[in-house]
C-alpha cells in the first residue's frame, strides 16, 4: 500500500495551522478579551489534535473514513473526565471562543466563495424557498420528536 503523505504536505499543514492559531488568538483577544497567551495555547492544542487526526487518516489504510471522524473521536476522547490531561485541555481550549474561531474561518470561506458568486445569483428565490423548507422541517421535526420523548418519559 502506498502512503500519500509527504514532508512537504505535513509542513504545509503545520504552517497553515500556526497562522490560523495566531489569527484566532488575536481575534479572541480583540473580541472577547481572553488573555492572548492562553488563547494561543488553546489554539495550539486544537491544532495539534487536528494534525494528529490528519496524519492518522493518511497512515491508516481505510480509504472511505474521512479525517474528520478521527479528529472528532480524538477530540472527544481527550476531554472525557477519565483522561489524565482532560482538565488541562479543557481549561486552555475554553479560552478559545467558538465564534472567534469561526469568524476567521468564515473570512477564508468568504474569499473562497468569491469565485462562485455567479452561480449563487442564479439560485435566487428558489434558494429562499428551500431554505425556509429546511428550517421548517428541522424545527417541526425536532419539536414533534421532542414532544413524544418528553411525554413518553413523563416529563410533560
Amino acid at each position: 500500500m502506498e502512503i500519500d503523505l509527504s514532508f512537504k504536505m505535513v509542513s504545509e499543514w503545520i504552517g497553515i495551522l500556526l497562522i490560523f492559531s495566531v489569527m484566532a488568538a488575536i481575534g479572541n483577544y480583540v473580541g472577547y478579551q481572553y488573555p492572548f497567551v492562553e488563547s494561543l495555547i488553546g489554539m495550539f492544542i486544537l491544532c495539534l489534535i487536528s494534525l494528529v487526526g490528519l496524519i492518522v487518516e493518511k497512515l491508516l489504510p481505510f480509504d472511505n473514513i474521512p479525517a474528520i471522524i478521527y479528529i472528532s473521536l480524538i477530540g472527544l476522547f481527550v476531554a472525557l473526565p477519565w483522561f489524565p490531561l482532560a482538565d488541562l485541555i479543557i481549561y486552555y481550549t475554553s479560552k478559545v471562543d467558538l465564534i472567534s474561531l469561526t469568524t476567521v474561518l468564515l473570512a477564508y470561506a468568504g474569499v473562497a466563495m468569491g469565485k462562485d458568486l455567479g452561480s449563487f445569483k442564479k439560485v435566487g428565490l428558489r434558494g429562499i424557498i428551500v431554505t425556509f423548507a429546511v428550517i421548517f422541517g428541522t424545527y417541526l421535526g425536532s419539536a414533534v420528536i421532542a414532544h413524544i420523548a418528553l411525554a413518553y418519559t413523563g416529563m410533560i
Binding site: C47, S50, G53
Partner: peptide, 14 residues
C-alpha cells in the same frame, strides 16, 4: 479551508 475546519471540529468534540 479543508485544513482549517479540523480545529473547529476538535473544539466541538472537546
Amino acid at each position: 479551508l479543508l485544513i482549517l475546519i479540523s480545529p473547529l471540529i476538535v473544539k466541538l468534540a472537546i
